[in-house]
Design a protein around this nucleic acid. Structure first.
Length: 599
RNA sequence: GCCCCUGUAGCUCAAUGGAUAGAGCACCGGACUUCUAAUCCGAUGGUUGUGGGUUCGACUCCCGCCAGGGGCGCCA
């Protein structure tokens, strides 16, 4: 229930929200006048009705009466109250029908009037339809976080796709979003790579796919490192040289790092993902070490060197048991760990960007680690630590619960997946539209293939493991992006054959049929679903809505002739088709999926 | 041992504490002289892991148990 005093603060994030709040207040007023406890109004869509409207139950009101001592049958009493309220709302122009059923009050909108308003709202806002009002809150989303000098596989892809979608959704919902990447450009893995390069690949220049080439050298290095203690010794020595700033090593590091960064730039560009700010581990390493020294002084960290490392005994400090465990903040040899750098980086983010919220898109296996970092920051006295949020997602596995690992060679390279998916899509375009120019066909194939891959990851909840297999990854049928894209193409195909200028926003003067009503209802849900997805960081709500919009449009397409229809039906259906196309576009847009004009 | 996640149709997954738990895939049967069949229509398919509790009402919230996965001092 929204108290009247809060009414002015309610932003119009959903369509018709103001109307709904006003009616809710009126119902509460009415119940109060009748001597009933004020009901909590929770508007739902009316199920099974096939009409457009809102609904709210009165069980709670009845239950409150029962608790107050009245001897009543609750469901019966709820129906009585609903009936009473319904009679109060009888003969109101904004509702076509008002009824009380099973303890619910059902308010059926005047369908044609609301249809007009929904379609008009979409058409007048265009690409901005569904966009929330600016909130004046800044949120940083850190995602992708690749290691340089390593391969990029399908497991990493889920992070990028999720982070990108969440960023877009938040931005569309009204937040000021800073998309941040954080490269692991230094550390043991890089030194191992450099060692292997110097020893076995000296002077080689990258060839073919850069990320793959770098990854191959890394995998090789890792294997030699694991198998041979002498290698470990050499790598440590090399790490020492790097630490001392040996010019030859630093130069090689800089050169190869650049190769890697350029390759990632191309990769993100290909995926249609951009970042507003980029951080590097190398830039927070020194500040991290200093920060840990400070922690020791403050008595937050315990220096157990030389026998042990520098640790933060979180459970002792927080007064918990077996909850936060112990965070290792610095190695016993004084070299930095992830934690060393993450603590420093967290502070840097808030200082540089004046954030309200800081989101970390990182897989679920690092949940404890993330809580340790946030807790440590809190103990350091940073109040904003509670505005740090770990957006955990489950990993991508291979069949048989096999974790993707470069070391074990159990990976599906991004490159391979994209190539395979694109060629499969191209084959289908070839069949459907052989007359199109080759370049156009290739564009469509890419759009479809990338869309399919992104959608398959976004249409599953963050907490669900994705099991990768080629068959389902390359399946373009059913609930998948190509289905949605095809509905968009069909809408476009109708519109191409109409006059450029849309007719005016006239009242709908014919009885809408079922398919039209459902389509309009789904369109009207979009702004609310954007807010819900933003609030819970769940693109799933929008990937589901996109599919439902597409299915509903296909239904409309089959049942409702547009171009052949008589006026004024024809004009309205053209407007509705335009609105559906726009809404599908906006919905896919925030998911990072493009829609082709033809396919 | 402690903590987290998951368990829903044969399979992969949805479902604001609300009315009759829905899609896709697979399987079976239909629909292109039509705004593109990458589509649509129909049929089959359920003790929501299990036992309690809270509630007018539980797939949803709480507790126990079972099963699977993950995490827990110098990896990232």
């Amino acid at each position: 229930m929204l108290p009247a005093s809060n009414l002015a603060r309610v932003k119009r994030q959903k369509m018709f929200e103001t109307e709904q709040i006003n009616i809710a207040l009126e119902i509460q007023q009415y119940c109060g006048d009748q001597g009933l406890p004020p009901p909590i109004i929770q508007w739902n869509w009316i199920p099974f009705s096939g009409h457009w409207g809102i609904s709210t139950p009165f069980f709670q009101t009845a239950a409150q009466e029962a608790k107050a001592g009245k001897k009543i049958n609750i469901s019966q009493r709820a129906q009585e109250i609903a009936q009473s309220v319904a009679s109060h709302f009888q003969n109101r122009p904004e509702f076509e029908r008002v009824e009380a059923v099973n303890g619910y009050l059902n308010l059926y909108y005047s369908t044609n009037e609301f249809a007009r308003r929904v379609v008009d709202e979409v058409l007048s806002n265009g690409v901005r339809f569904g966009r929330g009002e600016a909130r004046g809150k800044r949120v940083m989303v850190e995602f992708s976080q690749p290691n340089t000098h390593k391969a990029f596989h399908v497991g990493h892809l889920r992070n990028v796709i999720l982070g990108d979608a969440v960023s877009s959704i938040l931005e569309f919902a009204g937040f000021d979003v800073v998309r941040a990447n954080y490269y692991g450009d230094i550390g043991l893995h890089v030194i191992k790579w450099l060692w292997n390069y110097l020893k076995f690949h000296e002077g080689e220049e990258p060839s073919g796919d850069m990320v793959q080439w770098l990854g191959k050298i890394y995998a090789e290095a890792d294997q030699r490192y694991e198998e041979d203690p002498a290698v470990q010794e050499e790598v440590r020595a090399l790490f020492g040289r790097w630490d001392r700033g040996d010019p030859e090593i630093v130069a090689l590091w800089e050169k190869t790092r650049t190769w890697s960064l350029e390759a990632f730039d191309r990769l993100y560009q290909m995926l249609g993902v951009r970042f507003d700010h980029v951080y590097f581990e190398s830039e927070v390493e020194e500040s991290g070490k200093q920060l840990v020294a400070g922690l020791i002084k403050q008595g937050i960290a315990r220096d157990e060197r030389p026998e042990g490392a520098v640790i933060v005994p979180l459970d002792d400090l927080a007064g918990t048991k077996d909850k936060f465990r112990v965070l290792v903040a610095l190695r016993s040899d004084g070299t930095s760990l992830y934690a060393t750098k993450d603590l420093s980086l967290a502070i840097k983010k808030f200082e540089e960007f004046n954030l309200d919220t800081s989101i970390y898109v990182i897989d679920v296996r690092q949940s404890l680690y993330m809580q340790q970092i946030f807790k440590t920051l809190e103990l350091m006295g940073y109040d904003w630590a509670r505005n740090c949020y770990h957006l955990a997602y489950e990993i991508v596995n291979l069949p048989g619960n096999v974790t993707m690992s470069s070391r074990d060679g159990t990976i599906v390279l991004l490159e391979d997946l994209l190539r395979e998916a694109t060629s499969r899509a191209l084959e289908i375009v070839q069949q459907k539209n052989p007359e199109l120019p080759q370049g156009v066909k290739e564009d469509i194939a890419k759009t479809v293939a990338f869309g399919a891959i992104k959608y398959s990851m976004l249409s599953r909840d963050n907490t669900k493991i994705v099991t990768f297999d080629w068959n389902s990854a390359l399946d373009f049928n059913g609930q998948a992006a190509p289905y949605i894209q095809y509905a968009y193409v069909r809408a476009n195909s109708i519109l191409k054959k109409t006059e450029k200028k849309l007719s005016d926003n006239l009242a709908v003067s014919y009885p809408l049929n079922q398919a039209e009503i459902e389509l309009i209802e789904l369109i009207s849900r979009f702004p609310g679903e954007v807010q819900r997805a933003a609030k819970e960081y769940r693109p799933l709500y929008l990937s589901t809505l996109a599919f439902e919009l597409a299915r509903s449009f296909n239904d409309f397409y089959n049942q409702c002739p547009v171009l052949q229809a008589e006026e004024p039906i024809r004009s309205f259906r053209i407007r509705l088709t335009t609105a559906a196309k726009q809404t599908i576009h906006n919905c896919l847009e925030v998911l990072g999926i493009r829609a082709p004009e033809i396919m």
